[in-house]
Design a protein around this nucleic acid. Structure first.
Lengths: 353, 353
DNA sequence: ATCAGCACTCTTTATACGGGAGTGCTAATT
DNA sequence: AATTAGCACTCCCGTATAAAGAGTGCTGAT
């Protein structure tokens, strides 16, 4: 009654088993149906009979790489099976120059950054027929360029901050007392003279310092303005944000036919925070990242895969972009698209050009 | 072989038929199932036998107000049946003071206009468990408050416009030549001195006039700035826009279980233009408007009802808000909610308070 | 080690059947 | 003349049954 020797182990699958797993995943991705031993026998280059393949399949199933939906069906890959496929079996076909050029053209480099991001997410969703997303660039260094204070009413001042290249943020500051137009102008001039070119942290430190040294009335306004600036800017920078396009594409996939599950997914898209946390991990890790199903730790992403790539300017990663689709997707096609698009976006955002 | 005399006609349904139609719609809205003659006999105040009711139903069916899904099922209202129900049979229960107060509290009046609109759409969707929407206020009179020109690079100028109360729009202007900081400041001063408090059309006319009289270099900048201003502002004002919340709520209704149809609906939400056109009609008509199913002329809205109400400040309608849900919804509850919310929003937007 | 053969399992599709719900019609009743 | 009871009829729906198809696991032969 000794167990039959297992021919494969988790750490080193033998070459034949790897080859069969690869073929199986490819077949399943192509056809969307459990793959049987007969099909596998015909599809793989290996010249093996269905019976032999069944033995290998039994091993792969024991290792948790494939599973059968029911007793007499073919096998489908498990998330772990997909993981191995993607990490060591997948042969990505690099995009041809023509295709890269087509992407570059469709994503024409004009317009403001928000417009650009909209185009990118739409491009990704359009090309892949799944959902495309881009995080808005986070800039840890938020460089002040210009400040303007404008009196709105007795105790309300509109503070306008121009930061970085040409982004404008504004915030209504409720002041303790009424300021005259002259006071506001003076405050603006002082602010500009002192802090233009500095980043926000430096500016805040400077204001606090000035507050301590001399508690002039104008500095109270300054402090309020500083707080406003932080509020206005932190809204986007701190929390982060992303643009999503083509959610509705997901509704065409049979794996998302469960309305309740799909609803939870869409709600996660709206809530944003969970997904942002995930995307933050991606930007930290850098390069192309792939999450399969619930690997991410979020149950709503069950059945989904997330493929991201960081985009960077001057070597510094600013954010990530990518696609979300069913785990059963054409990775060999999608991965290079995400990769190239990230590089194109990085290039487009480069200020010196 | 003479046809039996019909007891009801389209124009004046007899009182009994009206009463029965009302009860039928109420039952159907409550239970979601075809209503049979037996149920109707018990539910209605009228003391009639099922057989009699069947006769009336046959008449209503001939008039196109109700239909039977199949031979031996009860009746359900047709869109025309709903129309009559809403126009002349429905008894809306006005909201109690407590409920109005609760709405007012949940929709607290702080923050900027965009924040406010977000809250309103979320409130509507939350309270009704359907999708809530608000158009962003269109202001045909866009009053300039302040202008600021800022040099970005050799041929790019950042134009910042503060309009109306405290809205900030900005646009990058590509100028023909480089302007010095002093020139820009002069231009800004001139612009502010001339056009502050004027609305955009007046300002444009003024700039053109000035151009004709003296073609100074500074005026070329002005013209570019005017164009920028129009571009920046028209983006929102011209096309219009709306905020939508709680789309996902729709996914829980059985009438939206057809994924393909639901997808089209969601895509219409994203495209916006069709819906905007519809909402524009609503704001023109004023008051509470209700579209049932495809009445609107848009097929994607089949199975949906849209309930809107205009919100206004100082008697001038600024936009509409409302909800979209399945045609089978609790109108008597939703209509007053939409109505009251519109009034609350109008009050909240009133500058003098 | 591989493979052919075979019994077995499970899904899928088609078909049949009975119960339930509700109708339309007719004839009786008010 | 309007209303109603009675009844045959239609259609839906859930369940049961059967047959076909696909694929497996196992055994024994090569």
């Amino acid at each position: 009654m000794s167990k039959p020797e297992k021919t494969v182990s988790t750490n080193e699958l033998n070459e034949r088993a790897r080859q069969l797993l690869k073929t199986l995943v490819e077949c399943y991705i192509r056809d969307g149906q459990p793959v049987g031993s007969r099909t596998l026998s015909r599809s793989s280059d290996l010249d093996l009979s269905p019976a032999t393949i069944r033995n290998v399949m039994a091993d792969l199933e024991e290792l948790g790489l494939v599973m059968a939906p029911h007793t007499s069906a073919g096998r489908i890959p498990t998330p772990q099976g997909y993981r191995i496929f993607i990490d060591s079996l997948l042969t990505v076909q690099n995009l041809g120059d023509a295709e890269v050029e087509r992407l570059r053209r469709q994503l024409n480099m004009e317009g403001s950054v928000p417009e650009m991001l909209d185009r990118v997410s739409k491009l990704l969703s359009g090309v892949t027929h799944m959902a495309g997303l881009v995080t808005v660039p986070r800039r840890e260094q938020c460089r002040l360029r210009h400040v303007e204070f404008l009196k709105l009413s007795e105790d309300r001042v509109l503070a306008i901050f121009v930061v970085n290249e040409s982004e404008v943020r504004n915030y209504v500051v409720h002041t303790g007392r009424a300021y005259t137009a002259t006071e506001l102008e003076q405050a603006g001039n002082y602010f500009n003279a002192q802090y233009t070119g500095k980043n926000l942290d430096e500016a805040r430190a400077g204001v606090l310092q000035a507050m301590r040294e001399a508690k002039e009335a104008v500095n109270a306004l300054m402090q309020a303005a500083m707080e406003a600036a932080e509020l206005a800017i932190s809204q986007e920078t701190q929390r982060g944000d992303y643009k999503l396009a083509g959610q509705t594409n997901l509704m065409t996939f049979p794996e998302f036919s469960d309305l309740a599950a799909l609803r939870q997914l869409f709600e996660a898209f709206n809530e944003k925070q969970d997904l942002l946390h995930l995307l933050d991990q991606c930007v930290r890790s850098g390069g192309v990242q792939i999450f399969i199903g619930e690997e991410s730790g979020y149950k709503v992403l069950g059945g989904c895969s997330l493929i991201t790539s960081t985009y960077q300017v001057e070597g510094k990663p600013l954010g990530v972009l990518g696609v979300i689709g069913p785990t059963r997707m054409a990775y060999e096609r999608v991965i290079p698209i995400v990769d190239v698009t990230a590089k194109l976006l990085g290039a487009a955002l480069n200020p010196r050009q």
